[in-house]
Design a binder for these strands. Structure first.
Length: 691
DNA sequence: CTAGGGTTAG
């Protein structure tokens, strides 16, 4: 038996070292072993500094329960153990326990020191805008004499005021600082970027230089962020030169912010040049490079960089996976998206709110609403983007009922409040799903109910909504009293509706506006010509065609594609080049007989007026989407939905035929055209013939 | 033994 009191100091020193080692190697096992040894050797007289070490250890490794227990069982808690606890909790984003501990130490009569206040401010920075907790800590810091002179305390207070949106107080604190140091300038710069005031970041930088200060890596990152956010390309490029001269580019974060800056300024090549020169890269570097490609229409390169990252031993992070999922959503790459879902599950990041929201978004945009619903319903928490993505998923397939019901859930959940995107999605669901009255009422009341002023996108939805329901004149009235200039999509929606309901004169007005706004677009010309043709106004139809030829506008050829075993098969109308051409024709011929027996009549009205080829009735059967479907029926095993993409709107006859085929062969067919999804099953389509 | 400002995403 050792005499406890005498043994303590001698045993305590190596114990302290062991705990330090556990922290630096981030090893919970080593730390717990040291804790057990402390209890065995030193209890009940564990010296306060060992207790502080233990609290620090659990706190730093983000084991909040154990940290709280260590603090609670400390027989003589000190400022240091409390500060260690508060610091860890604040750093790991747990403001409530941090602030409770701060209050607790005050109650015990312990006086917070110059180390405690910065952590307390960091925790208080999480508080909602109207909370006074930060100001209360501020008063305390003044009373204890740490303000205005202590740099650490004053900078933390400054940052807290910025982060809680109390800009006036932040500015006053900054203006009254007796001697501003670099960290204070940096706090101004970084918070201006975060709050979306990039010009102020640049101004603060100039202020720093005028005061004779030199930037450090933090200031440099903030500067590039400001340039990236507002795409100040030339300003950032000039700064790049300065950064090279100072040697800052060896810092990973600086180079990362440059990659991001060039990517956001639509210079993926320059981003790549920075990336290639980096001596050290981290996961952020790889992710920034992926995003730089993905956001500049270079999705394939984005995936190549991802594969390169994996080969270099990078572990997929939540950032990486959510960025790639967004890329899939843009590519309509459902298979790729599913593969990434699997990666997310294996990496245990599928419950991350960014990843899960990106999954909901990807499944919704790629035509897998059921999977979107599954992810959505199993998410531990949801935010605005999650709800918007789910509503958007329903909008894509025109499921207005579910879109409205989820919208209702969102409002009732109280988790978030709708923003303008929410309303765009709900309105477009109503329009696609034919819920005219509900959609129109929502449009009329959105300002008063949700405080959201209708934007161009909302007007486009409501014009589409009314137009589809045959109320083109009402839609035109709304366009005329819009507070902002009507966009291409608004006139496009009106033209489409006029075409659908034979409102030729109004359609002409819309088309003229469209030709002004977008003279090169072929689709609008085709639509106008077809509209005249349907109305029997042949000479005007011909005039439009002549005009197109004169100006040199070519009709975009319709293409459909389908993926099978990771190979994309592309079809054009009357395509005979596919390797399985004969089988495809045989399937189509058989389908035609079965469909006619079931009552199908071909709809050739558009084929007949086609601008380039006067297609005959039989040629309707060679449309690209039908060829793709036949291929899918041959290759894709029964039970697996057939997914087809088309670059133009699906044709009326193909739509009619697909409904028959879905019933005859008993398969689900999902067509994504340039506007929406059509989900065919049992002789019906999800759009209910309204698109 | 405890401390401030930093890069990527839905």
């Amino acid at each position: 038996m050792r005499p406890v009191a005498a043994a303590a100091p001698a045993d305590a020193q190596p114990l302290a070292a062991a705990i330090e080692a556990a922290i630096s190697s981030r090893s919970p096992r080593l730390g717990r072993a040291a804790h057990a040894r402390a209890l065995r050797l030193l209890a009940p007289a564990i010296p306060p500094f060992i207790c502080a070490h233990l609290v620090n250890f659990y706190s730093k490794l983000d084991l909040p329960g154990a940290a709280a227990a260590a603090l609670a069982t400390d027989p003589h808690p000190t400022v240091v153990s409390y500060t260690a606890f508060i610091s860890g909790a604040a750093q790991h984003g747990r403001p409530v326990p941090a602030l409770l501990a701060f209050a607790g130490m005050l109650r015990l009569g312990l006086r917070p020191n110059d180390f405690t206040f910065p952590s307390a401010f960091k925790a208080a920075a999480f508080a909602p805008a109207r909370s006074t907790i930060g100001s209360q800590i501020h008063s305390l810091a003044i009373r204890f004499g740490y303000l205005p002179d202590d740099h650490f305390v004053s900078c933390a207070a400054l940052d807290m005021y910025f982060k809680t949106g109390q800009l006036a107080l932040a500015r006053r604190l900054f203006d009254e600082m007796p001697n501003r140091n670099l960290v204070a300038w940096n706090a101004v710069m970084t918070n201006a970027v975060l709050d979306g005031r990039p010009l102020e970041t640049v101004e603060a930088y100039l202020g720093l230089r005028e005061a004779g200060g030199m930037p450090n890596v933090v200031s440099v990152c903030a500067f590039f962020n400001a340039c990236a956010g507002s795409t100040y390309l030339s300003l950032g490029e000039q700064f790049h030169g300065f950064v090279l001269k100072c040697g800052f580019e060896t810092d990973v974060s600086v180079s990362n912010s440059m990659v991001d800056f060039y990517g956001k300024c639509r210079c993926a090549g320059k981003a790549r040049a920075v990336f290639d020169r980096m001596g050290v890269r981290n996961s952020v570097s790889w992710c920034s490079m992926v995003v730089a490609y993905a956001q500049n229409g270079a999705e394939e390169e984005a995936f190549t960089v991802y594969q390169h990252a994996r080969r270099s031993g990078e572990v997929p992070t939540d950032f990486m996976v959510s960025s790639l999922l967004t890329t899939c959503a843009g590519l309509l790459g459902l298979d790729l998206g599913r593969a990434l879902h699997a990666v997310a599950v294996r990496s245990c990041i599928d419950a991350n709110i960014f990843v899960a929201s990106a999954l909901v978004d990807m499944y919704g945009k790629c035509g897998g609403v059921e999977d979107a619903e599954l992810v959505f319903s199993e998410m531990p928490q949801r935010n605005l983007v999650t709800w918007n993505s789910m509503i958007g998923g329903y909008a894509h397939i025109g499921d207005a009922r579910n879109a409205l019901s989820i919208f209702d859930d969102m409002i009732r959940s109280g988790e978030t409040t709708p923003n303008y995107i929410t309303l765009v999605n709900v309105l477009s669901a109503c329009s696609r799903g034919g819920l005219t009255a509900e959609g129109y009422q929502l449009f009329e009341t959105m300002k008063e109910r949700f405080g959201i002023e209708p934007r161009t996108e909302h007007y486009a939805c409501v014009v589409d909504l009314l137009g589809r329901a045959g109320m083109e004149e009402r839609a035109y009235e709304i366009i005329q009293r819009m507070p902002v200039r009507p966009s291409i999509s608004i006139w496009g929606a009106l033209l489409g509706a006029c075409k659908m309901h034979g409102k030729t004169e109004l359609g002409k007005i819309a088309a003229e506006k469209l030709f002004e706004l977008d003279p090169q677009d072929s689709g609008n010309h085709v639509l106008l010509s077809n509209m005249f043709a349907s109305a029997g106004r042949w000479s005007e139809a011909t005039d439009v065609r002549k005009e197109m030829k004169k100006v040199g506008i070519k009709k975009e050829p319709g293409r459909s594609w389908i993926t099978w075993k990771n190979v994309v098969h592309v079809f054009q109308a009357k395509d005979t080049t596919h390797e399985m051409h004969n089988e495809i024709q045989a399937v189509l011929a058989k389908l035609k007989r079965q469909m006619q027996a079931a009552g199908y009549m071909p709809d050739t009205q558009y084929a007949l007026y086609d601008l380039e080829e006067e297609e005959k009735e039989s040629e309707v059967f060679q449309h690209s989407e039908k060829l793709a479907l036949a291929f899918g029926l041959i290759c894709i095993p029964p039970g697996v939905p057939i997914r087809i993409m088309k670059n133009l709107r699906i044709c009326v006859d193909c739509h009619r035929a697909f409904k028959f085929i879905s019933g005859i062969v008993g398969r689900e067919i999902i067509v994504r055209d340039n506007n929406r999804f059509h989900h065919f099953r049992h002789y019906e389509c999800s759009c209910r013939d309204y698109w």
